[in-house]
Design a binder for these strands. Structure first.
Lengths: 131, 131
DNA sequence: TTACAAAGTGTTATATTATAACAATTTAAC
DNA sequence: GTTAAATTGTTATAATATAACACTTTGTAA
C-alpha cells in the first residue's frame, strides 16, 4: 500500500469526507484553493485513485466515491445502490452477491476479471417521504 | 408497442445494424446525410429509445447498442459483457442471473426497481490471440 | 551518492459528451 | 376539428475528459 502523492491525497481526502459522490469539476472547484488549477490534475489523480481502489467511479453518474470496503483495495468487484430520488449512493458489501458474480460464467466463454453493478431504486427515506 | 418517429427510426436502424456499440457523435456523423444535423436530435432519440427499451446505454463506454433480448422491452435489468481488448459488447441473457439480481435485497432496506451490470474481461478471440 | 527510470506535476489547448431554451410542426386522442 | 402531447429544428453553451509537451520529484539500485 503505497503512499499517495500530494494531489492524490488532497483529492482523496475531499472525496473521502464527502457524504455523496463528487463530480470531477466539483472536485476541481473545491481544490483550487489548494493549488490544483487544471482539470487534468484532477483527472490524473482520479485515475490513479480508481486504479489502486481507493475510490470508485459511479458510471451512471460520472461521479466518484471513496471505497467503503476495506477488502476491495483493488476494485474488481463493485456494487452500488443508487437512490433515484435523493441520489444517495451506497457501496454494497455482500459476500453472497460478490461470490455469485465473481464466479458467474456465461455461455459465451468469456473470462471475466472485473464487474460493476449499479442498482437503482428508492432509499428508505425517500420511500417514506412519498407515502 | 408504439411506432417510432422518423428520427427515432433512423437512429434505431443504425444502432441495430451495427456490430458494436455506437457513440452519440458517431451516430450524428452517420445520420447527417439523412437530415439529422444537431446533437440534440440524436440525444433526444437516444433518450426515447433507451426509455422504451429498444436500445441500452453501455455506461462505462458512453455508447449504445440495440437490445438483443426480446423480453426486456423495458430495460430494468440489464447485463453486458465487455471485452477490454477488442471492446466487443454482448448483452447477457441469463435467467438465473436476472432472477438472482431482481430478487436481490440488501440490508439497507432499499427497494430496487432497476439494475445495470457490466462484466469486463477478455473474449474468446482475444484470449487465443494472446497465447 | 549519484544517476537513472518511473511516477507525478503544471500548463495550454482541445476533444468529446450532453443539455438549455425557444419556436414550429406533427401526431394521437377525444 | 380541436386540443394536448410528442416530436422536430435550431443556436448556443455546459459538462466531461484527454492530448501534448516540458519540467520536477521520488524510488531504487549500481
Amino acid at each position: 500500500m503505497q503512499n499517495l502523492s500530494k494531489n492524490q491525497q488532497i483529492i482523496f481526502d475531499l472525496i473521502d469526507k464527502s457524504p455523496e459522490p463528487l463530480k470531477a469539476y466539483s472536485i476541481l472547484f473545491n481544490v483550487q484553493k489548494k493549488g490544483i488549477k487544471a482539470p487534468l490534475q484532477v483527472y490524473r489523480a482520479l485515475d490513479k485513485l480508481v486504479e489502486i481502489g481507493k475510490i470508485h467511479k459511479i458510471e451512471s453518474r460520472n461521479a466518484f466515491i471513496a471505497c467503503q470496503n476495506s477488502s476491495c483495495q483493488i476494485s474488481k468487484a463493485t456494487a452500488f445502490s443508487i437512490c433515484e430520488s435523493c441520489e444517495k449512493v451506497t457501496e454494497i458489501n455482500n459476500s453472497n452477491l460478490s461470490k455469485y458474480l465473481t464466479s458467474f460464467k456465461d455461455k459465451n466463454g468469456m473470462k471475466y476479471n472485473k464487474y460493476n453493478l449499479e442498482f437503482f431504486g428508492l432509499c428508505k427515506k425517500c420511500i417514506s417521504k412519498k407515502s
